[in-house]
Amino acid sequence: MTDDDPDRPTADPVGLEPRLDELRAELTEAIPDDPDADDLGVAAIIAQGSPTPTTPERHAALLTAARDGDGSALDTLVAELTPLVWHVARGNGLDQALAEDVVQTVWLSLLRHLDRIAEPRALAGWLIVTTRREAQRAWREANGRAALSSDSAVDVPDTRWLPETEALRDDRDRRLWRAFAALPRRCQELLRLTVLAGRAEYRAVAEALAMPRGSIGPTRGRCLNTLRARLEREGGA
């Protein structure tokens, strides 16, 4: 903080300045600057602020019904969109147990915010943004330090990252999984979401990822290239 107030009553009588400096240093560490571009974050924000008539009516209608107290409408949303929330949480570096916690927190948060989602058609964007925030908070609390979402996941023990081992059927699965888990988190998140976005029932995600036009595609391409390079380095894709 600059020290140029001519009308300050006294020159820092109780050592306030060092205290504020220390506080600033702490908070700067707690909320670090992330130099990497966050295309997905921007896309999800833009999706929420851009009501377009093509976004799925279905989720909007369910959300409206849920607002009016229809519990089964909310349950349907949960059933249909939990995979989205799950993959965002997992893509942000959480192990399965923490990801489950975050999924629950996000849906509770939706219940609290039901009346305040400005654009019901943009539910997918809201879910993506909220889940990332909760995932990063959970990661920070579990690891005792700031979660830069662009961090590589390599410092996380392999076992916490593996899905149920029986799900990894063969050696190739395991090699792919290791290469995938070593990608920057933002890539893991984006690749998971672009898979969902390719499906009819997640058209909302596709639309959330479509803006700003053209930025997600190249990012996805770069992530795939990195994945391929890692696999080749490990010996034969």
Binding site: A37, D38, G41, V42, I46, M211, P212
Partner: peptide
């Protein structure tokens, strides 16, 4: 969108 994206980052 491009300007907004820059601003956000």
């Amino acid at each position: 969108a491009a300007a907004f994206s820059d601003f956000y980052h």
